[in-house]
Each structure stands twice: as structure tokens, then as C-alpha cells.
Write a protein that binds this DNA or RNA. Structure first.
Lengths: 185, 185
DNA sequence: ACGGTAGTGGACGCCTGCGTCCGTTTAGCT
DNA sequence: AGCTAAACGGACGCAGGCGTCCACTACCGT
């Protein structure tokens, strides 16, 4: 996709993505496209040419966050102690979402349209299901835990607002601890 | 405040508040003032004359929700079993916020400006502190519980999005149950 | 070095929401 | 019934975001 671009165009594209990542993370999702273009040092037309819709931009911009999600889940699954692994997953996912303000909203709202992400999401959920199954079998995780509970927690974690990123991360950490308490058998 | 109004003006005022309550509850807070006026069957000017800012409108519109909050807290405080009272407070507050989409955001964002509400809020928090103190003394509530945890939970509860009110309430119910688990000693 | 073409960004028109003005209507008192 | 002031709402101008067009720029192959 990025092959046939001229060198300067590719450069601009990179700068747009970088700017988008920064702004989305700090200011959230409802930022004018103009502002992103301004920060990237390009005109609006260039931005629109590369990314026709804000969705498309967000999808690309958050690709690495998506990868980070899967790494986290895989690490959890690889942990010899399933319960410990699950706890880590919860803590890390909460923190990831707290650090990046736009990611949560992009993740939840952008989702129905991004088909390729859906597949990855399914895979991650399957891994989480397996992890929780194992954690239950060790007796540390409540037997009535369902996967929806975890999703519920993540969605709720997204509701944690604060003025600074630092405060948001702190709140998220405390919240993750509470969630783990709630899930403990 | 509503004394010196002419009868038709007062009638319009009532209709505006009613429309605002309905719309805020279902569609959330970012609804054009125009839309509220339209539903109330008045012109924009009338709406702006009665409520110069959306804040002012929201404050009045959610007055009864605020009262409901305090009733809930008082009921919890009156419960002979403090832990049971606290659980009821959590469940009811979560449900109240889930039912009314705009209330949570209005509550959190409008707050610094509404001075008279601040006093009520302080009173409610004091009651909650007392209730949690008692619940701790019975040994049912975790000793390391702090009031901020409850606020954290309420904020997180506000992050629960869903297409229908019904689904949101259901999610909120499950969430409240998890929160109670997390707080149990 | 130069021509062709991919790439650029300023500028434009459109739309939506905001807050206010002013000519008209209507309640309420006599 | 008639008068007056309160109340109304359509209409206006403003501001900001959106998506697109087109004259100009600069990369790249020869």
C-alpha cells in the first residue's frame, strides 16, 4: 500500500500518522482533522488524500496499540500461573487504555467497520477465554466469571476521566486492583 | 425565581425542562439547544431567555436526579445493616446513572460552576463516609476501602456505553455486583 | 538538465450550531 | 373592551469544521 508512493509523499504520510498518534492520545478522538494536518505540517488536502475518513486514519494510527494488546494477551497466556497471567493482562490492558485517551473510543466506535481488526479481536478473545478457563481450574478465579465481565471492566475503565494522563493512569491502576479483587474466588 | 413569570411563560418553562430531561436522558448531553426548543414547542430565543447557558438548563433539569441521589444515600444510611445499606447505595446509584445518560456527564462536567450543588455533594459524601465507616466496623467492608474507591466506581460506571437503555442498565447491574465483590472484606 | 507527472496546500463553498435582535402576539389588569 | 408590558419566535450574522478543486511545486527517470 505504501509502496508506490513517492519519497516525499511517504514522508508526509509518516508525519501525519505520528501527529495523529500524539494528538489522539492526549486530546482524544474529537479533534478536527485540520489540527492533525497542521501539526503534521501538511495541508488538509494531503491528509484527506491519504486517509479519506477519520476512521481510516485511526485504524492505522492505532495499529501498534492493537499489536500491544495482543502481546499483552499472549504474555498472559504464556504465564505459568494462569491467575497471575490474567491479573497481569487486566492491569496492563487497563493501563494501556488509560495512557492513550483516544484508543478506547477508537476501539469501541470504529470497530464494526474495521473488518481485519475484528479477526484479531476474536483471536484475542479466544486467548482470553482459554486463559480464564485455566485460571478457573486452579481455583483462583471465580467459577461464575464470564468473558463479558472482563469486557465490562475494560469498558468501564474507559470511563475514567481525569485532567492529566498521570492522574488517569493512577485511577486506572487502582481500578484494575479492584477488578482483580472482584474476580478472585 | 419562577414567581414573577406570566402564566404562559411559566408553562413554556415547564415544557422546556420536561423536554430537556427526556432528551438528555436518552441522547446524552451533546444535543443542540435548538433540538430541545423544537421538542418543547418554543423558539430558540425563549429557551435562551430562560436558560442562558446549557449548564443552567442542565442544573435545573437534573435537580430531581440530584434529590434522588440524596434519597438513595439517606436510605442507605438509615439501613440497620451498614454493609447492606452500602450495597444498596452502590446498586441504586449505578442504576440511576445508567438510566439517565446525560446525568453522569452533567454531574461531572457541570460541577465546578454549580456552587449550590457542591454543598449538597459534600453532604452526600459525608454521609457516604459515615456509612462506609460503619460498614467497616461490622467487618463486612474491606478495611482499606477509601471513599475515592466509590467515586472511582461511579465514574467507571459512567463509561458503560450501550445502544439501548435496557442494555446499559443490565451492564450497570452486573458492574455494581462486581464492585460489591471488590469491596467485600 | 529537463520534461512529465505525482504530489501539494491554499482557498472555496457548504453545513451546522450558536446567541441575539426586533416586529408581533398575548396575558392580565382596569 | 382596551391598554400595556411581558413574552414569543422567526430571522440574522457569526464561527468553525468538513470535503474538494486547481494552480503550483518538486521528485524521478531519461
Amino acid at each position: 500500500m505504501t509502496r508506490n508512493l513517492r519519497s516525499d509523499a511517504l514522508d508526509n504520510r509518516q508525519r501525519i500518522l505520528e501527529a495523529a498518534r500524539t494528538i489522539f492520545a492526549t486530546d482524544g478522538m474529537d479533534v478536527p482533522m485540520r489540527e492533525i494536518a497542521r501539526r503534521a505540517g501538511v495541508g488538509p488536502a494531503t491528509l484527506y488524500r491519504r486517509f479519506p475518513t477519520k476512521q481510516a486514519l485511526a485504524t492505522e494510527a492505532f495499529a501498534e496499540q492493537m499489536d500491544a494488546c495482543h502481546v499483552i494477551v499472549d504474555e498472559g497466556l504464556a504465564d505459568p500461573d494462569p491467575w497471575h497471567g490474567l491479573c497481569l493482562v487486566i492491569e496492563k490492558l487497563c493501563e494501556l487504555h488509560a495512557r492513550d485517551r483516544g484508543y478506547t473510543t477508537a476501539f469501541t466506535t470504529a470497530f464494526p467497520h474495521a473488518v481485519d481488526l475484528a479477526a484479531k479481536r476474536e483471536a484475542a478473545l479466544a486467548s482470553l477465554a482459554e486463559l480464564s478457563r485455566r485460571a478457573k481450574s486452579t481455583g483462583h478465579l471465580r467459577s461464575d466469571f464470564v468473558l463479558d465481565d472482563l469486557i465490562l471492566i475494560l469498558m468501564a475503565n474507559g470511563g475514567l476521566h481525569a485532567t492529566s494522563t498521570h492522574a488517569r493512569v493512577a485511577a486506572s491502576r487502582r481500578f484494575a486492583a479492584l477488578a482483580i479483587q472482584a474476580f478472585r474466588a
